[in-house]
């Protein structure tokens, strides 16, 4: 019953318990970003406070895109992961092809494709196009995470459940997935954070996310340095907070470990 972990690729690092010292990278980054942002806003309210006040609408949009996209991406990822381990060759091929195709095309190109190229056939609202593109892209990554998580569970678990009379689907939902969750959660958390950062790409479409709001403000007031400094700090604070939340959740999911 040893816990297995999946290597993580991108997204902010999830704080580990062993890095929990007073001067952990997480604390330095978080405190630093917060102090700098506060100082700027307090001592130079013009333009920093103005910029900060201009952003909340955009932050909301950023979160909206992120949350819808992550929900669809997780569902899609679950289906894809199950498809990838399916014994049915057709389902398996569909899932694998989807993963290969999506992973081979840059997210920005996918965004353009769904928004502009497919715009020739269906004109999707900006937000919808953005969410679809992000979900499709991250669904493929999630699919790999789910597949690896499911495959990390000892084969004996499947055998024990099957020997009791559970069919494959029941075994998956009652026995395998509840255990796979905690292997899957850290990388899913990472993908969540990576997705939040990648939503900045939708600012290229007409979606008024945080980055686009910032661009509008900067180009009207010519405060490029100030605006992008604030934007970078806000992104950093958000992703650091999220990574902390993921690590707390992860801790909670380890409830059945020894000691």
């Amino acid at each position: 019953m040893e816990k297995k972990t999946i290597d993580v690729s991108d997204g902010a690092a999830i704080p580990r318990k062993k890095d929990a010292g007073l001067f952990s990278a997480w604390r330095i980054s978080f405190a630093g970003a917060l102090i700098i942002l506060l100082c700027l806003v307090v001592f130079e309210p013009d333009p920093y406070l103005k910029i900060l006040k201009f952003l909340p609408d955009g932050i909301l949009i950023t979160f909206e895109v992120t949350i819808f996209a992550i929900i669809f991406a997780v569902l899609l990822g679950l289906l894809t992961g199950l498809g990838r381990i399916s014994k049915n060759p057709f389902i398996n091929a569909v899932a694998s092809t989807y993963v290969e195709v999506v992973r081979g095309i840059p997210l920005l190109v996918q965004l353009f494709y769904i928004y502009y190229a497919l715009g020739r056939f269906v004109r999707l609202p900006d937000m919808v196009a953005a969410i679809i593109a992000m979900s499709l892209c991250y669904g493929a990554y999630m699919g790999e995470v789910f597949r690896a998580g499911i495959e990390s569970i000892d084969k004996g678990q499947m055998e024990a459940a099957r020997s009791l009379g559970f069919n494959r689907t029941q075994t998956m939902f009652y026995v395998i997935l509840p255990q796979a969750w905690r292997t899957i959660l850290p990388p899913v958390g990472n993908e969540f954070i990576a997705l939040l950062k990648d939503t900045s790409l939708v600012s290229i479409l007409a979606v008024a996310d945080m980055l686009r709001r910032g661009r509008e403000f900067a180009s009207e007031t010519f405060t490029y340095f100030e605006t992008y400094t604030v934007i970078a700090l806000v992104y950093l604070l958000i992703t650091l907070l999220l990574s902390k939340m993921v690590s707390i959740l992860e801790e909670k999911l380890n409830y059945y470990d020894q000691s």
């Binding site: 678990q157 024990a160 009791l164």
Partner: peptide
């Protein structure tokens, strides 16, 4: 087969309890 298995209990070398 699942109905047959319900009538046939099995104990494994490695226990295979559900850890969760």
């Amino acid at each position: 087969i699942n109905r047959i298995r319900m009538e046939v209990g099995m104990v494994f070398q490695r226990f295979n309890l559900f850890p969760h």
